[in-house]
Design a protein around this nucleic acid. Structure first.
Lengths: 230, 230
DNA sequence: CGATGTGTTGATGTGCGTCAATAGAAGTGG
DNA sequence: CCACTTCTATTGACGCACATCAACACATCG
């Protein structure tokens, strides 16, 4: 259980908290493995817990009077759901069911809300964490609509290295296709952009280690061009 | 001042609050008009207020040791900024200056934090509002990367009408190019998609009034095709 | 050593943005 | 009330950025 908390701590909702606080809040949380299609709660149920997804995926849906279901949201590992309802203290407005086999952290409402109500500072830190994530997402949306793939990739490299270094080394921790997907490009395009930047002498690539040879020129390239293929 | 609160209430941060609560929180807030390029706060200043943008735009930036400035974020009307720092009770990590002439609501930290700390329920409702917005943004990002322009437009129309109506009337309140931009498409493309849907007999368009003739088929079209021009 | 998975590179297609022209709609002023 | 401007919306022609499809290089592993 404790080993899961690192993952939970990365959720925007909890990212602002100190580890001790997280521990107190999750004192009564429990790990729960569910099978694909297993139901978690139904529309109209009293909201007595919310969830963090450790692995797998979950879908939220409604049923129309005709009986066909409308998917409201698909949730993936790392996301929380149900929290808004819990904070407002009502009933779930949707059904929830596992989409694939999944492992969840189930966080009961009772103590959680009580602790937060009593400890305003903690609530404020949660607000801080979630609002930082909000700003980041707003930026992502902007980048997706206003920038080219090249600019987003360059921007990613730029923000991976200290603000005022002339050059730097970036190590990609995960698979490149994961990074590509986070930037909203296909893996092939990501690879091509890196190749272009390498040919321009702005970076050098060795596996998952990327060396930025000239940050300033990289920034310049992003800002004025970001153009496609050479 | 009071007439501004309606706009403020739409900010994700405040959307979960009751009007009375908002009024209490903003008791010491004040309206502030600033000229383009006017500075709001500097990096390292103690965070004593945060801001809601009524109109105009603001930029957050840092200064590198070499003196050139790196823009961290561009903020537009309807957004708040500085709140995360205020919640954490520290110093601003960035400079802020008006990008154009702007009108802001300046919300002083002191009472705000005190009220929230004392009233846990209010903090929870703020958390609820902001986390709903978070989910919405995550969906937007997904739609931008996974769906075509046609699918996003169709999705927009679908979510504008009650979940299980066979047909419905949608009235676009603002200019179409605003809607288009929210969906991440150009106004021309938006217009073309509407034309396509009209030609398919799924909707009929009269100015800003759109009649959805067959919601089910519209949903079907979005889910299987969303293809470009005929 | 075959098998599987990840990354690179090439050839080709297309969704949608860009540019441009036109038609309405809406406001302005005499 | 009608010219005149101004702004939004629509439609067409064209091009490009990026996805798609496909082949291949290179690693890791049983």
């Amino acid at each position: 259980m404790h080993e899961d908390w690192e993952a939970v701590h990365k959720a925007p909702l909890f990212s602002g908290l100190f580890p001790e606080e997280l521990e107190r809040l999750l004192a009564h949380a429990r790990r729960r493995a569910v099978k694909a299609h297993e139901a978690l709660f139904a529309e109209g149920d009293k909201a007595e817990a919310f969830y963090f997804i450790l692995s797998g995926s979950v879908r939220l849906y409604r049923l129309s009077p005709q009986g066909d279901e409308k998917v409201i949201e698909i949730l993936m590992a790392g996301q929380t759901f149900g929290e808004a309802v819990v904070f407002l203290g009502g009933r779930y407005p949707v059904y929830a069911a596992a989409l694939s086999d999944a492992v969840l952290i189930e966080i009961p409402t009772g103590d959680f809300v009580r602790i937060l109500k009593a400890n305003g500072g903690m609530a404020l830190r949660m607000l801080a964490g979630i609002s930082m994530r909000l700003h980041q997402l707003i930026n992502d949306v902007q980048a997706l609509t206003l920038e080219t793939a090249g600019q987003r990739v360059a921007g990613y490299l730029i923000e991976q290295c200290p603000a005022d270094a002339k050059s730097a080394d970036v190590h990609i921790q995960v698979h490149k296709n994961v990074v590509a997907s986070r930037l909203g490009v296909k893996a092939e395009t990501f690879s091509r952009v890196l190749a272009t930047l390498r040919d321009l002498g702005l970076i050098s690539v060795a596996g998952n280690d990327i060396h930025i040879t000239d940050r300033a020129r990289l920034v310049k390239w992003r800002d004025e061009a970001g153009a496609g293929r050479p």
